[in-house]
Design a protein around this nucleic acid. Structure first.
Lengths: 354, 354
DNA sequence: ATTCAGTTTGGGAACGTTCCACAAGGCGCG
DNA sequence: CGCGCCTTGTGGAACGTTCCCAAACTGAAT
């Protein structure tokens, strides 16, 4: 780096305005009283020199940065993009900045750790963790030192506050929707709890509810969207299956693409459900039936909680579960051969064992 | 804010390890030599105390922050989300952090200015501007003080480096595609240059090419996606129109939704084109014909350029125009009544004047 | 005139780090 | 043994800001 001209300091401004640095400090920080005439002179001098406060120096003496750290696994996914935006906006309202750190796609523990350490170096005053993958025990060491809120997923640990949309409710609601349409044999693309703290519980909830209501369930493990072709094949192998539940909108869209390639009619041959309901994927154009999470609310509540913790108050609810909404689109419908009036089903397939 | 325990400093670590603060500094910064036995002792002490370097203090003396500022209008849009992710990753490779500032949705000049000033306070070493709306003259004052690169859009000003995908080429390619299919009367949803530095030129390029090749053009001004219903109405009012070109994928999807509501068959009745080709909107499911920009490349090249500027080199190309790709989907096809073999058109509509 | 309160201003310490100059000790070499 | 050199460790200055305290100045009341 070639030597660039130094930024002007309050001392430069003070010299220019013919006052002491203390006066300039009071003018730029807005604390303490300054004579009106002097303040004008200082403001003018600052403008002439293009003075801008140095946040580092300020942070040093104030022991505050007015910065909240947000950790997300991958900011490019629409879910996190929306969450970040919502948080940023709300934080600005509280006088805080949000600085985000990401785990760098490669899903490595060391990257994750480095990201969180970077936030610590920057002396963020609090932490908002928005990752479906980072387990509680990795968050805990930081939560001990910083007010920490987990956003977008339930958190079991008592010393961590969380703001989320109940996964059980959503999973059950989608299952009920399919059951109500008459589906009795449903495939669920499942994700293990280990692989995701959000996708795991919601698919488990789908399976549970379907079982409870006496439906047959085919579980297709499928954490990664790239394997959507295999899900399609697996679901189609079982002729009794009339619906497939995906762990997220993106999974659902990947599945819809694969079904389309294979000439499967949705929802004629097969119904499909998603989960999340964010941004462009929830477009009416695709018409995906899904469970919609109030991401904006999750984001702003998370920030509110963090600010309350910073103010030394305990947030009203340690774990805030926000209500979601069932959005019925055009990817779900009654199963083939289903007679809506007799409430019984014809053309039931043989008792395949799965 | 209640008083939180202070973070340990190098002095605390020094005391714990029984050495001077200078030794600790050398250990944590990795500069200067330290006896092996001593270094072990320091590392252990730091770990015991949970010491983390204070970036502010470091920045003060080093006059460096290893931080690049990114300004985007709205981080929630997929285009910018992807761009940011790409930049973040590349910057990390160069040893820089990216801190983003947004113009807070409300599209106010004062917000914009505050966002850029925040970046200046944080003493970012360089600036990457990724906004289709912020005009050059607003960027210039910052470009004079900081190495500045504009990403994702062409930049005319000679003292600002830019990395982008040529809008003229994309607009023309899409127009050619439609012309090649046999379309002769095309509506273009146009955005003024004033409203967007990216959307403006690309729609202008579409119109230009269509005119050059002798097609009739209906210009429908439409900066905001919310008015997509009106575009649909306007296009359908002119029976000669066989295709509509949207300024972006998101505009195109909004239009497709409106056309769907009105029972218009795409591409049977009307062909539709998009522009950008990012993430989930470019999904094969929708099958939108569009011009794809290499966003990842734009992001990483922008960071590379910034780093070169920081190193005092001039980047090889002051203005880097990257190649895009035409992606043909299922939203475009031959116009109704078009006979592919005779290369002439039947059922031509009356000479409507527009 | 003198005191007193209130406002405005200036000087200096402190924040946590890096870097520089320097000291102490070990080592090889004449 | 004395000299310089290299390695390792120490103390202090500096970075740009805020805040505390003291000084200077104002004006009003005694």
């Amino acid at each position: 780096m070639t030597d660039r001209p130094r930024n002007p300091t309050i001392i430069d401004v003070a010299r220019q305005a013919g006052v002491s640095k203390s006066v300039v400090s009071r003018v730029v920080s807005g604390r303490g009283s300054v004579g009106e005439e002097t303040r004008q002179r200082v403001v003018r001098a600052a403008q002439e020199l293009g003075y801008v406060v140095n946040a580092s120096a300020r942070a040093m003496v104030a022991h505050r940065t007015y910065t909240v750290g947000a950790f997300v696994r991958d900011a490019a996914t629409p879910f996190y993009g929306h969450l970040l935006t919502a948080m940023q906006e709300r934080a600005a309202g509280h006088g805080y900045r949000v600085v985000t750190a990401t785990g760098s796609g490669r899903f490595e523990v060391s990257d994750e750790y480095r990201a969180l350490e970077t936030l610590a170096m920057l002396r963020v005053e609090a932490l908002i963790v928005c990752s479906g993958l980072l387990p509680s025990e990795r968050i805990l060491p930081f939560a001990e030192r910083l007010p920490t809120v987990v956003a977008g997923r339930p958190e079991t640990h008592p010393s961590i506050t969380s703001v989320y949309c109940d996964e059980d409710e959503g999973g059950a609601a989608l299952a009920d929707h399919l059951l109500g349409l008459g589906h009795r044999e449903v495939a669920v693309v499942t994700v293990s709890m280990r692989d995701s703290v959000t996708l795991g519980p919601r698919t488990a909830a789908m399976v549970r509810r379907l079982h409870e209501r006496g439906a047959r369930v085919l579980e297709i493990p499928g954490a990664h969207r790239e394997t959507a072709g295999a899900w399609a094949v697996e679901a189609l192998r079982h002729p009794g299956i009339t619906a497939v539940m995906a762990p997220s909108d993106r999974h659902a869209v990947a599945l819809l693409e694969q079904l389309r390639l294979r000439g499967v009619d949705v929802p004629g041959d097969l119904s499909v459900t998603g989960y999340d309901g964010i941004g462009d994927l929830a477009t009416p154009l695709i018409g995906l039936t899904h469970w919609r999470q109030p991401i904006d609310v999750i984001g702003s509540r998370a920030v509110d909680a963090v600010v309350q913790l910073l103010d030394g108050e305990r947030p009203p609810d340690h774990h805030q579960a926000l209500p979601g909404t069932l959005v019925v689109g055009r990817t779900t419908g009654p199963p083939v051969g289903w007679d809506c009036c007799s409430s019984s089903r014809t053309g039931r397939s043989s008792e395949a064992s799965y």
